[in-house]
Amino acid sequence: MSSDRAAEPLDTLLARAHEQLGIAVYDGLMSRGGPPELRDPEQVLGRMLAAVHRRTGDAVVTRLGRNRRGPSAAVVAGSAAPADGLLMQRPASVRLKYREQAMNCARRYWPLNVETVMGRAVEAVQDLIAGLEEERLSDTTCDRLLRVSSSMGRVLALPEHVQLPLALAGYDYVQEVEDYLSTCTERLVAQVRRSKQLLDSELSPYFYGPEVSWLGMLEVSQDLGDDLDLAHREALSLSRAVAEVEEASTDFRGADLQQVNLDGVDLEGIRWDASTSWPSEWTERIWEASLAASTGEGELVVGAKPSDSTVPADI
């Protein structure tokens, strides 16, 4: 490249590249008999935009991967997790249409209450530390730690990330849910794996030795307590992520759903209010199947079947 060309502003270079690309596209079309007839312009435009979006995403991911040097788990996790309430910012029509897939995804990543499991593990180790500081252990301490190890094994069995097939807007939303939950789960599983290894390989052998080493057990127990505190925080993060998915899948107060095809959509448990707009042919059925929520704020909840009671007209 000449020195004059190198000195050109970036905007000039981009404009020239854009012009050359336009010429190449035009020549290519004309060489094939001219521009094709567009029978469905909106559909063609949608496909073009989706293709450009996917290619742009691939390019960005490739560039980030090329520039990233030894990413830490925290950096990777932070880039994948959406900001607070981002799922709720997706169109209500998409959230409603794919709510069942999103809820199923949340149930896969929350087959057990990991917040409770890790909370009990923290309590068990805190009690162990207190006993070791007093040089007095309960006869049930060892069995309790074995149960903690077993429960952590259940956390390690949480599902791994699933890469869904590429599709248009709807499945992109489900993939976003999948990525969000799996990111939280991966951090939790990694921390629990470290904690379980410390418990099984370094702490448990003390209980089977010829004599108790109070100082050694205390040191390992304190390290384990610190690790479990971190694991408990990750469990709380996963709990919040699941709650956010459930919120995005149930809260449709004030949403405009007039153009949504509700055939086959599970509406049970959906929260809505008088400002929610339903398709005209569904409005009566929705009112009949709904009950006033206990919040007292004009909120309604869709039931499994038409309600026997009447919803007040001033809701």
Results as ranks from 00 to 15, higher is better:
W278Q: 05
F252T: 08
T295D: 15
E123P: 03
V117A: 00
D226P: 01
S307N: 14
E135I: 00
R16M: 08
L10A: 14
G33S: 11
A167N: 09
E268P: 02
S182I: 05
R5K: 10
L300F: 12
R240C: 08
S307R: 05
A274L: 08
R99P: 00
V302K: 02
T56I: 07
A130I: 09
E234V: 00
G153T: 04
T310K: 13
E211F: 10
L137S: 06
Y109F: 15
D11A: 14
L14K: 10
T116N: 00
P35S: 08
F207L: 05
G22I: 06
D84P: 08
L87S: 12
T12C: 05
A255T: 04
V302L: 13
E8I: 01
E268R: 14
L257C: 07
V52P: 03
A59C: 12
P279T: 05
L228S: 05
K305F: 06
Y208T: 11
L64R: 14
Q89T: 14
S151I: 00
G34A: 09
V117G: 00
W287L: 11
L262S: 07
A231M: 10
G33N: 09
E281N: 12
M30R: 15
N261A: 03
V117M: 00
P111Y: 11
S31L: 13
E19D: 12
G85W: 11
H232N: 06
G170F: 08
S213T: 03
G119M: 05
Y98W: 13
S237T: 04
V75E: 15
S237V: 07
G269F: 04
L156R: 12
A59I: 11
L166A: 14
R95W: 07
L96V: 03
Q43H: 10
S249H: 01
D266Y: 06
S195R: 02
L203C: 05
A50P: 04
A17M: 09
R54P: 03
T140M: 08
G170E: 13
E135L: 08
V189P: 00
V122Y: 02
A51Q: 13
Q89V: 02
L188R: 02
A167P: 01
Q222V: 13
L132H: 02
Y173M: 10
R154T: 05
V192W: 01
R233Q: 14
A289P: 02
N67R: 15
R285C: 06
E160Y: 10
P159D: 07
E244I: 01
D256P: 04
S221E: 05
L262A: 03
A83G: 15
E135H: 10
V174K: 03
L158G: 02
T56C: 06
D308G: 13
A157M: 13
V162C: 06
R187Y: 01
R69Y: 07
E133P: 00
T276L: 10
V311D: 05
E268K: 13
I270W: 00
V76K: 12
S31C: 09
A243V: 11
G216W: 03
L236G: 09
S2K: 09
L300K: 09
S280R: 15
V60Q: 13
L128P: 04
G298K: 05
L198F: 05
G22D: 15
L14Q: 12
P205A: 07
D11I: 10
L166T: 07
G131V: 04
V117C: 00
P165E: 10
P41M: 05
R253D: 06
E160D: 15
P312F: 03
G33I: 09
D40Q: 10
L228E: 04
Y26C: 12
N67D: 14
H232F: 01
